[in-house]
Amino acid sequence: MTGTVAVIDYGMGNLHSVASALEHVGADDVIVTHDAELLRSADRVVFPGVGAIRDCMAEIRRLHCDELLTTALVEQHKPVLAICVGMQALMTRSQENGGVDCLDILDGEVRFFGKGLHEQSGERLKVPHMGWNRVSQTRTHPLWQGIEDGSRFYFVHSYHVVAQDRELVAGSAHYGVEVDAALARDNLFAVQFHPEKSDTAGLQLLRNFLHWNGQC
């Protein structure tokens, strides 16, 4: 029994991919919503996001999704999976759009990759960081179960998370700089990549999420 998975909808971008991937890996019931009651009764919550952070934060606050997320996370201790801009929104602050205050659920900053990004070898790197990169599992976690360490996941982002507390880092990627690819704290798991677009490795992560009890 996976229970009901609520995908928080704050109107930014297409959430059907996340919902259909969850259904594909066996979710009993997936709802895409920002309704307080539906979220309160859901068994687990996905907090996705695409687009620019300023608009995302504005919609998150306007629709009270910040409060809904806090309720699920802190009061109800439900398993929560944040994806891409959803992960970035959890941090203290983002450099995007001239600097935007985020939810400050996790300590840390979201930084621009920068112009003229290079690998140590001298290879020039394009921004956005777009495509399949390896994720090193920097600690064990139930959501990594059945996924080989170093598996590739699909990334597409121009800003990357730098967590203050390095103990939270559960997965790391390299693209000119170290990229915090996954953060974990208690019943929260946050990923910069798109598990719903990451083929078998991504689907396995979503499957793990559906069976996760929120402990790590």
Binding site: H16, S17, S20, H24, Y154, H194, K197, S198, G202
Partner: peptide, 11 residues
């Protein structure tokens, strides 16, 4: 496109 997106989990 809808049909493909339901069954294909790559971009």
């Amino acid at each position: 496109v809808e049909k493909i997106a339901e069954q294909v989990f790559i971009p």
